[in-house]
Design a protein around this nucleic acid. Structure first.
Length: 857
RNA sequence: GCCCGAGUGGCGGAAUGGUAGACGCAGCGGAUUCAAAAUCCGCCGGUAGCAAUACCGUGGGGGUUCGAGUCCCCCCUCGGGCACCA
């Protein structure tokens, strides 16, 4: 009998699947289809355990669904454009293309030994000209349908490197390379009209039944539909025709508590003042010395500049409010101007106290006992809008009403009195897709002095990225590439210049799922293939993509439908979504002479009785609790090493077994050892059973068969509900039962065959091996999934716990369907109950049939 | 700062509002062995107790309920996102 040797078993069965073409997706109209997709990887260089976990989960689903008779599509590709390739080119020369394709080759070579049931014939990278050429073609379609436009928008500008910075390249308000304070700068950029779809994208969330509730909540909040009042303050002696300031507020019910008006440094009025007054110019310049991210603006100290100008309150023209320029107000939101009500907004309150502005409550708690008014030094009073409050300075509706009612009546009152109108706004902004970078899909338009912005002709696509470029000076090489940049105008033929902005990589990942249905089509999609394979039935990826990637894809699918590239049924492209957790690991750190941390790889650590030490020097090592595996912290284990030492099945089993899939899993060497030992044990048990021939007792046969059907039921439910760890726990239990069983060989062989099959989505190689040992027909991959016999699942008796006052004191084993009255009699006769009642009668006797009994004294 | 999650033994975790700790790891005891590895069997939340058993226990504090890890309110800690990281 051979020992379990993964390095022997795994390549053998991978070759068998390859030869059988087991994973080629075939369009078969006679079968139901199932499209399972994991978020495709960025080719960073090497795969990591997070990838292994993500793809293993998808693989379990893909293999299970194939066994259930579905025609399965399970493809893989590469999200291959992006900054790291460009950074690598800057750091060590070379071309981003070579770096990227080298990485893809390495990572594919690392993924293959995992034995994933992927149809590799559909593989592509988003940096393939065939792919981004189709994307450019769709961009032209979008232009034609009015889904794209240009406008000015702010970017992070590094004044030393003379280049645009990504948010992650801005560290503490400074450029990551130059260290120079970044500036906000306006550039004309390309935008998708995603905000036109805000209402629809919001409403359609309700139909996403198989998406996690938290993702739906995050998307709803992101779209941020609000009802509010838009109106203008008239200015007192407004300069140069600026006689009004238009504001939008979601809390018009606090209008009588307004104490100042704030405008963005980029507001037209602020810009006008800036030209005339040095002090305003200085303040605005300082305010612009900040990154563009919302997070940075919110965290920064709130600063204001008193312009000396005032506006009149719409309901009391003798009441004048000061106008401040404030660094936390963005021109992109609403009207770029707000009124501040310090009593009911903590940020406004902080601002008011700083600049000694009045604080006026418009409402207070109904029961204001213990409530310290913000006027008297308390915090801003910000109750939920659904809570009833007492309006002390309201101007419409009842004195006692909820915030929502207060807002509604305030809007109605203002409209009736000619002060502005109620409007619905969305927080969602249009999707800026321009990137001033090289390594992305070129935006296929040409700028002509005569004709303006001219779309490239479709027959000239793809507009391919040039190879003869260098990255030794900052900025986009496309900007300074004369032969690539200087082209004739597609409309008039005169000399013109190509657009040098490339597309956001979110564009690439917003339709790759559709391209997988026909990866070689001469158009973006093939209608028949898209109709058959779309939608993605199960999408799996990280929670970090909960908002942007998924929202953009939902928009993009709609835009593709408008242009005829997807059927109407595919505008919500992901039927079910699962967000898996990360793989974490402990961090090992020592200190250098300057007390800076030095990180060490897990494989360099040795464990002694006195703790962790560095293997090479014996130096003690500090162990920091688990965090996401990252190269910088060196808390990584290389899947390649794990596969070499234990085999792919062990890696797959471990990442599924130890934690619920939506939670983080901590990689531990002990856990990997345990997984390996268990697989070896299964192999041994099954090999023994395959060689044995015993008669067992009939009772043992029935008992084992019952356990087998129970296992089929539990494991199937586990997989269906993404409870992989629970399914694996049942498989452990069933293995224990099988090992201890006194059943005869026939019953044991059947149970062993079912065990191998139930394990096959998780450990496909081992399962094939066991299947063969047991004389199973063909490959277990593709063998029909077993179905539990319902009659074998039913138990005749149940054990009811007996609680006294909610605490378990005894138990009672009765026939499953014993009448409630009979149960009550038996309960009252129970020793523990008799003792507790001490001759008295229970106050209450609760019998939940088949579950529990509670005696209340 | 704003939005969304998560917190259960030494560890990973299980538990349609119904016996908290399934299953696994580590640990302890035993069998096997010349010995070890491997394997097999048993024990394994805390406190008190020889024991039977009692009390405590799901991040902290309140609440709803016959009954709360699970539902509600407040708080703490950790993680994800915040529109140019992917």
């Amino acid at each position: 009998m051979s020992r379990y040797d993964a390095s022997d078993i795994e390549p053998k069965w991978q070759a068998a699947w390859e030869q059988a073409g087991s994973f080629l997706a075939r369009r078969d109209e006679s079968k139901p289809k199932y499209y399972v997709l994991e978020m495709f990887p960025y080719p960073s260089g090497r795969i990591h355990m997070g990838h292994v976990r993500n793809y293993t989960m998808g693989d379990v689903i893909a293999r299970y669904k194939a066994s259930c008779g579905f025609s399965v599509l399970h493809p893989m590709g590469w999200d291959a454009f992006g900054m790291p390739a460009e950074n690598a080119a800057m750091a060590s020369g070379g071309h981003p293309k070579d770096w990227t394709y080298d990485n893809i080759a390495t990572m594919k070579q690392q993924m293959k030994p995992l034995g994933l049931s992927i149809d590799w014939s559909r593989e592509f990278a988003t940096c393939d000209p065939e792919y981004y050429g189709q994307q450019q073609s769709m961009f032209l379609d979008f232009m034609e349908k009015g889904l794209v436009y240009r406008k000015a928008a702010t970017v992070n500008w590094d004044p030393v490197d003379m280049t645009v910075l990504a948010n992650e390249q801005v560290i503490d308000g400074k450029g990551w390379r130059s260290g120079a304070p970044v500036e906000r700068r306006e550039l004309t950029q390309w935008f998708f009209h995603i905000s036109d779809f805000a209402e629809e994208l919001l409403e359609a969330i309700d139909g996403l039944d198989d998406w996690p509730e938290k993702v739906k909540v995050m998307q709803r909040n992101w779209i941020g539909k609000s009802r509010g009042l838009q109106f203008s303050f008239s200015m007192v002696d407004g300069p140069h025709g600026h006689d009004r300031i238009e504001v939008y507020t979601t809390r018009p019910d606090t209008l009588m508590g307004a104490s100042f008006v704030g405008i963005s440094p980029d507001h037209p009025l602020a810009k006008m003042l800036e030209r005339e007054r040095d002090d305003v110019a200085a303040f605005n310049a300082k305010a612009r010395q900040m990154g563009t991210s919302e997070e940075e603006l919110e965290r920064a100290e709130k600063l204001g500049f008193d312009t000396g100008l005032t506006v009149r309150h719409p309901f009391d023209t003798s009441w004048e409010l000061p106008v401040y320029i404030a660094n936390f107000i963005l021109m992109d939101y609403g009207t770029g101007a707000i009124f501040g009500c310090p009593a009911h907004d903590q940020r406004d309150l902080d601002f008011a106290r700083k600049y000694e502005l009045p604080v006026i409550s418009t409402y207070a708690p109904r029961d204001d006992e213990g409530h310290v008014l913000p006027e008297s030094g308390g915090d801003a009073y910000v109750p939920p809008k659904s809570e009833k409050v007492h309006y002390v300075k309201g101007f419409a509706g009842d004195a006692m009403q909820t915030g929502e009612e207060g807002i509604d009546s305030a809007i109605a009152f203002c409209e009736a009195n000619g002060v502005g109108q109620g409007v619905t706004k969305f927080r969602l902004r249009d999707w800026g897709l321009s990137r001033q970078r090289f390594w992305g899909a070129p935006i296929p338009v040409v700028h002509c002095d005569d004709c303006g912005v001219v779309p490239e002709k479709k027959e000239n696509l793809p507009v391919e990225l040039p190879y003869d470029v260098s990255f030794d000076i900052p900025g986009n090489p496309l900007d300074r590439h004369p032969t690539w940049r200087d082209v004739p105008c597609p409309a008039c033929g005169k000399p013109a210049k190509r657009e040098t902005d490339t597309m956001d990589t979110f564009v690439d990942s917003s339709w790759y799922f559709a391209r997988f249905t026909a990866p070689n089509a001469a158009t973006p999609t093939d209608p028949e293939e898209a109709a058959y394979w779309m939608n993605v039935d199960q999408y799996i990826g990280g929670i970090e993509h909960a908002i942007l990637h998924l929202l953009y894809s939902r928009f993009y699918a709609r835009a593709m439908h408008i242009c005829g590239h997807l059927p109407a049924s595919a505008i919500e492209p992901f039927n079910a979504l699962f967000t898996q957790g990360m793989v974490t690991h402990e961090i090992y750190v020592t200190r250098d002479e300057k007390d800076r941390p030095v990180y060490h790889l897990p494989e360099h650590i040795e464990w002694t009785e006195s703790g962790a030490r560095l293997g090479a020097t014996g130096e003690p090592v500090e162990v920091i609790p688990s965090a996401k595996m990252s190269k910088s912290k060196k808390n990584v284990v290389d899947p390649e090493t794990i596969i070499r030492d234990y085999g792919a099945d062990t890696a797959r089993w471990f990442v599924l077994s130890d934690s619920p899939p939506e939670r983080d899993v901590e990689w531990t060497a002990a856990g990997a050892d345990a997984a390996y030992k268990h697989l070896a044990r299964v192999h041994r048990i099954i090999a023994e059973i395959a060689e044995s021939s015993d008669d067992g007792s009939k009772e043992a046969d029935i008992e084992l068969t019952r356990a087998m059907h129970r296992a089929i039921q539990d494991v199937t439910m586990g997989i269906e509900s993404f409870g992989f760890n629970a399914a694996i726990a049942k498989l452990y239990a069933f293995t224990n039962t099988l090992q201890k069983s006194k059943a005869g060989t026939d019953a044991k062989r059947e149970a062993a065959r079912i065990l191998a099959q139930l394990m096959s989505p998780m450990t496909p190689h081992l399962s094939e091996e066991c299947w063969r040992l047991l004389g199973g027909e063909g490959l277990v991959t593709g063998a029909p999934w077993p179905v539990a016999d319902e009659s074998m699942l039913v138990e005749d008796t149940v054990t009811l716990p007996i609680q006294i006052n909610g605490k378990r004191k005894s138990e009672l084993t009765v026939a499953k369907d014993l009448a409630k009255e009979e149960v009550e009699k038996l309960v009252l006769a129970d020793n523990a109950v008799v003792k507790a009642l001490d001759g008295g009668a229970p106050k209450k006797l609760i019998v939940v049939p088949g579950r529990i009994v509670n005696v209340v004294l």
